[in-house]
Design a protein around this nucleic acid. Structure first.
Lengths: 112, 112
DNA sequence: AACAATACCTTGTAATTCTATGTATATATT
DNA sequence: AATATATACATAGAATTACAAGGTATTGTT
């Protein structure tokens, strides 16, 4: 597990990207997928994830549809048009930032 | 300029790395160097930098020596032994995190 | 029946960077 | 000489955001 501060600013980009790739996902599914894709190194807590999904919904980046699985309600989240646009912007910014950071901190690894 | 949250968790790694490479630096010099190395994309505000340097000093990672340049006092910061150890740990964690994040968000760019 | 896993939620906390503001000296420009 | 810009430090409070802790309820496993 990484220092939790490292994740800041990247969580929404991760969510946007997962939803863009998978069409629609529910919260628990997102947390499991992140855990799986990161080999257990990024463990999204539900205390982080659900408020983030709600905020992104409030900001117009996501919508959701509730479906009943037996008696249980699942919220499937998907990107809005605005969310798709933001995804492109966020990922571009993140990519640029990661490149800059690599250059700054690991100059010997960053090939021009 | 990047969304300010992105820098979180990386600032101390940047400072530790710069001091490790340059021996000793003063605050203003650090901010200018970061600006220069990042092509103006990371602009450390002094409201961020000086408190960070103070905290890292309090945590035993840095020490400083004051020198007078004319009438002006400069604080030259340098790594302590503990700071050198932390630098290795922080950079390893950061490198691992960046690799994980790349895999998660830019899978098509991350070659196994 | 008991437990773990699934699936959602809320409140308050902690950590960290930033904004705004302040002080003062040194250098460059007009 | 006066003014503006750059240098160099600092602090207080705001904003953001992931987390911890706690809660509810259903489903699957032993």
């Amino acid at each position: 597990m990484y220092s939790k501060e490292l994740l800041k600013g990247t969580l929404s980009a991760i969510i946007l990207n997962l939803l863009a790739e998978n069409g629609r996902m529910y919260g628990y599914e997102i947390s499991q997928r992140v855990k799986e894709l990161s080999d257990g190194k990024i463990l999204l807590k539900d205390g982080s994830l659900y408020p983030a999904l709600q905020k992104m919904t409030k900001d117009g980046l996501l919508t959701y549809k509730e479906e009943f699985i037996g008696k249980r309600v699942r919220k499937y989240y998907l990107l809005t048009t605005k969310g798709e646009e933001q995804k492109v912007l966020y990922l571009a910014e993140l990519k640029d930032f990661l490149a800059t950071l690599n250059k700054l901190v690991f100059p010997q690894l960053s090939l021009a």
